[in-house]
Simulated scan of single mutants.
Amino acid sequence: MSDFLIYSGYLILLINLIFYSFSFFRKKEVNVFFLGYLAFSCVMQYSMEIMYHLHTNNLFLSNIFIIGQLILLGLFYNSLFTLKSQKSFVLISIGLALLILGLQFMMDWSQFLRFNLFAIALTSLLIVVYALIHFYNMLTESKTYYYASIGVVFYLLASTVLYFIGNLTHNLSNEFKFLSWQLNAFLIIIYYFFILYEWKKSFSK
């Protein structure tokens, strides 16, 4: 069941990348940063899977992924904003987050080589804030990337809470830990379906 959820997520992500790439290269309708995020996600997910099967530690890739995710989704929302103050907030907050994480890694390099809850929480919550600002803007503007943003907020909040619960309950049984990873894999599938639905509503025609 776990493998089915994981590989289903990979497949839906790849389908999203193909569909959004088609719309981008054919009509230039898709936001280049969002397309870059999908391509980056594909590379990271498949790289982590390959390293897992090679029995190689791939946790450092998770840190590269969440940092890249912050930068690409931050630039994505920055490109959607029209107010200078909102654009400045995104760029400054990304810069500060990268500075904080850079200092953390310099003080303790091992943080980069393992599962980093602080980095996950910091980057995820910043992206959620960007998405919520976009929702606020859509009250008076056109609803661009509405469903994708719902997926962003839903998945990042839910997964962050799930990671913290898993960390706080690390002494519980392996069955409980396995269940939490299955739930996260299921949440990713829902997230990718939101992105797929966004393409259907906004770009498929």
Rank of each mutant, 00 (worst) to 15 (best):
F105L: 12
I189A: 05
K28W: 09
L172R: 12
F186I: 10
Y146R: 06
W109K: 09
F105S: 05
L126Q: 06
H55I: 03
Y191C: 08
S202H: 08
L187V: 06
F154D: 03
A148I: 07
S180T: 13
I165Y: 14
L80A: 04
L183P: 01
A97C: 13
K201M: 11
L125N: 10
K28C: 06
E141C: 10
T160S: 10
N31M: 10
L59C: 03
G102F: 11
F186T: 08
M44Y: 07
L113M: 14
V128C: 12
L70H: 04
S62P: 00
M106W: 14
I50T: 11
I195Y: 14
L156W: 09
N58T: 01
F118W: 12
V30T: 04
K143D: 00
V43P: 02
H134L: 12
Y136W: 11
L139C: 06
V43L: 13
F22G: 09
I188K: 04
L75D: 00
Y146G: 00
Y20I: 00
F154I: 01
V90R: 05
T123G: 07
C42Q: 00
F24W: 14
Q104I: 04
I195W: 14
Y20C: 02
L125T: 08
L168Q: 12
I15G: 02
S149L: 05
I92M: 03
S79W: 12
F19L: 15
Y197L: 07
N171V: 04
F24D: 04
N116I: 06
I94L: 12
F115P: 00
T160N: 14
W181G: 00
F19A: 13
L75I: 02
M44D: 00
Y145W: 10
L157A: 11
L103Y: 15
D108E: 15
L125V: 05
W181H: 01
G68K: 03
F4M: 08
L91A: 10
T82W: 05
S173E: 03
S23M: 03
C42R: 01
Y10T: 00
K84S: 15
F105K: 04
I150Y: 13
F186D: 01
G36Q: 12
V153A: 09
G74M: 11
S149R: 06
V128N: 02
G151R: 02
L96E: 02
V90E: 03
Q111Y: 12
H134T: 05
